[in-house]
Amino acid sequence: MGKKIGGKVKPAPEAPATVEEIRGAYVALTPAELLKLEKYSMWKTRGLERMGGPEFSADSLFGEAMMRTLDGSKNWYKSKVSFFVFFHGAMKNIAGHWHTHLKSRNASFEAQNKRLNYRDGEPDPMDVLPAGGRSAEDVLIDAEDAAYASDFIAQIKTKFSDDQLALDVLDGWSAGMTPKEIQDILGIQRRDFETVQRRLTRAIDETRDRGGVNE
């Protein structure tokens, strides 16, 4: 029952979906929605798994988002958004936290490594870093990431050097633009954009599967 304020009845706040409602909602997701969420989780965790290990995989993101939805730490309000939209938001939020966590963890290890290197005559950081932490070798891998990213982008661009539309879409993505913004700027239809999207993502996948760079 809502409260009466100033002569108007203010509706009672909506209760979050129950566990049973959440169960009903995930079972009712369409094959297309399931596959879009899968693709989203795969691309969203690209780089995270490399930074943090298998616990930051796409499947882990899925599991974590679902667990948090069921245990009530993430609330879905049925009248506001569909379960598909809600779940996309939940995964986005968790991946964001993972990213921040991994970045700060890596920064802290790098700072520790620098301090150890600064003091002359101190033991090698490789021997000093705690077993549970990341080794100096891991920190070096981080430093290599910059070169990896640079080579990766260059390799994709070379692959599409004769396809200006693909290069433009790639630039749009690198600038953080939405599909709609890219379509509007390039003056292309959704169908054409999606065709390029599939071509590009397949090429990126293949590049990654073959080991990424320097082949």
């Binding site: 879009k36 969420l37 693709k39 989203y40 989780s41 795969m42 691309w43 969203k44 690209r46 780089g47 996309h88 982008i153 790639l170 749009g172 993505w173 690198s174 953080g176 633009m177 939405t178 599909p179 709609k180 999606e194 999207q197 590009l200 993502t201 990126i204």
Partner: peptide
Amino acid sequence: MFDSIAESFIDI
């Protein structure tokens, strides 16, 4: 870029 691609798969 990976983030934008992820979002593109929600809109596809």
